[in-house]
Nucleic acid binder design. Structure first.
Length: 269
DNA sequence: AGGATTTGACCAGG
DNA sequence: CCTGGTCAAATCCT
């Protein structure tokens, strides 16, 4: 069942990461050079699909599971601070070891879900702070969906929203909604390998208006409670068939950073 | 008054 | 040791 990550496994994963990295870089260049040529997309798609399959096998074998966001039972309670003994302090790191499940670029913070902001951080690698939101129903329904919102550096009018976990809550005000790429011409979804197995379930999003007390107008704070989405573009998964790699700008930055954990500029220059 | 946001502290992963 | 994700008291807002 459990098996340790052997040195050989690690080497394979690292090597595959390099391959995927190179492939993505190549894809970016090709798309820029041969924009509109369908054969480029098809060939690149095949390549990424193969890589994806390898990762699927590796991840399956190595149990590279993502998104286990189980809430400590004792935390489900009132809103007031719980006093933890120094040795049992909960207020610390919850660093998620898994990859983001979905990254969305959006002109608005509205996504049809109700979010409550629980933190904001200055991020070393970015000029803009990152805001942290959890589902409003985290405590009453145990919904573990969270999202991180950050303004794009290159396009400050755009928010980069990373969704982690999935909504398990049932908000009567929220009809079931699906990420739709059909009616939204600038939509692209970024879904990563670690969550690939539940990508389809996570493909939920906005559409319906939702009564919000405060819109996302605030500049720095990225306030919560956003409403029916528009202006979305959901970046495609590296492992998904329809790969639409962002070719430049913040999306490319984001893409590379998310997939490979580093900035691609150095490689493309 | 109650719920949401702000913000500094905490702390584990890398 | 640095970074980033989370907690929760203080504060703000409705």
């Amino acid at each position: 069942m459990d098996r340790k990550l052997l040195a050989g496994d690690r080497a394979v994963v690292e090597e595959m990461s390099r391959i995927r990295k190179s492939a993505m870089q190549l894809g970016v260049l090709l798309r820029e050079a041969l924009a509109g040529d369908p054969t480029v997309g098809a060939a690149f798609e095949e390549l990424t699909n193969s890589i994806s399959r390898v990762f699927a096998v590796l991840e399956g074998g190595l149990r590279l599971d993502a998104g286990v966001l189980s809430p400590p039972p004792h935390q489900i309670s009132t809103k007031k601070r719980k006093i933890y003994p120094a040795t049992d302090r909960q207020g610390g790191c919850r660093r998620r070891s898994h990859l983001p499940s979905k990254i969305v670029g959006s002109k608005t913070l509205n996504d049809g879900q109700t979010w409550r902001k629980y933190g904001q951080k200055e991020i070393q690698s970015s000029k803009n702070p990152r805001s942290y939101f959890r589902c409003t129903h985290k405590f009453d329904q145990g919904c573990m969906a969270v999202r991180q919102v950050q303004r794009s550096e290159e396009d400050p009018s755009t928010y980069l929203i990373t969704y982690l976990g999935e909504h398990t809550c049932r908000d009567p005000a929220m009809a079931p909604q699906l990420f739709s790429t059909s009616d939204d011409n600038n939509t692209c979804l970024l879904s990563f390998g670690a969550s690939r197995h539940r990508a389809e379930k996570e493909a939920r999003v906005p559409a319906s208006p939702f009564p919000s007390r405060k819109q996302e107008s605030d500049e720095e704070g990225l306030s919560n409670l956003t409403t029916g989405g528009d202006d979305y573009f959901v970046i495609p998964a590296a492992e998904e068939p329809a790969v639409m790699t962002p070719t430049s700008g913040f999306l490319a930055d984001l893409y590379f950073e998310a997939v490979f954990g580093f900035d691609h500029h150095g490689f493309l220059s």
